[in-house]
Design a protein around this nucleic acid. Structure first.
Lengths: 111, 111
DNA sequence: CTAATATATTAGTATTAGCTAATTGAATGG
DNA sequence: CCATTCAATTAGCTAATACTAATATATTAG
């Protein structure tokens, strides 16, 4: 029962398990587009560290980038979360725990 | 912007980021109840390692245990996944991507 | 052209994580 | 009892991780 080589779930989980890196993802997500310099500001770590975190997030499919001049703009790629959604869905937590939300939503959709 | 002390999301993500430990969780989930000995069998690691993983999972709120004689029976606690659900929900991935499932589900609930 | 800015990368370091082997403490079966 | 089994814990090893400081490479500003 030895695990196969690093599957997507592992890659994404590991990328998001580190609080600093997860905070980077969150900031990227909240701003439509953001540069490395901006992300570095107020992050508490160096620019190099931020670049390293962005590299991990990119490999995990959680962010994408666009170079423009000497700036590189990063944006979130929430589809990168899909492996987690699928994994958790398999364990049946969503519909079970979200049933109340579901009901609320139903009223809004089809009152 | 220094992160506060280990929040639940970090705890759960880290618990599930390791493939071996995640496999343990999966096996615990699949069997209603399972002993450490059974989990060790075919896991590829020693009993000590399994106990250590179970400790992490327990701290993350993902499993619970019941001692009976010299055996300890573990069971999954899927509510422990709640921090992840909440975190991901905040990033809006569920309803967007699961709308078709939602429609299917609706028919079953209220045909 | 030169200086400054933005980002990536690299080498080195300290900490953490996962593992084994060995031990301990219970509980059970002969 | 005594030997065996189950599980938790511990010490010690190794590998991975997150970080900094320094450097390299572009690009832009003056």
């Amino acid at each position: 029962m030895i695990e196969a080589a690093s599957n997507p779930v592992t890659t994404v989980m590991r990328a998001l398990a580190d609080p600093t890196r997860r905070a980077v993802f969150e900031r990227v997500f909240e701003s439509k587009e953001i540069t490395v310099a901006e992300l570095t500001r107020g992050s508490g770590v160096t620019q190099g560290a931020i670049s390293q975190h962005l590299k991990s997030l990119k490999q995990a499919g959680l962010v994408a980038e666009r170079a423009e001049g000497r700036n590189v703009y990063y944006r979130a790629a929430p589809q990168g979360l899909e492996p987690l959604v699928t994994w958790m869905d398999h364990y049946g937590v969503f519909w079970r725990e979200r049933f109340q939300n579901l009901r609320d939503l139903l009223k809004e959709i089809d009152p």
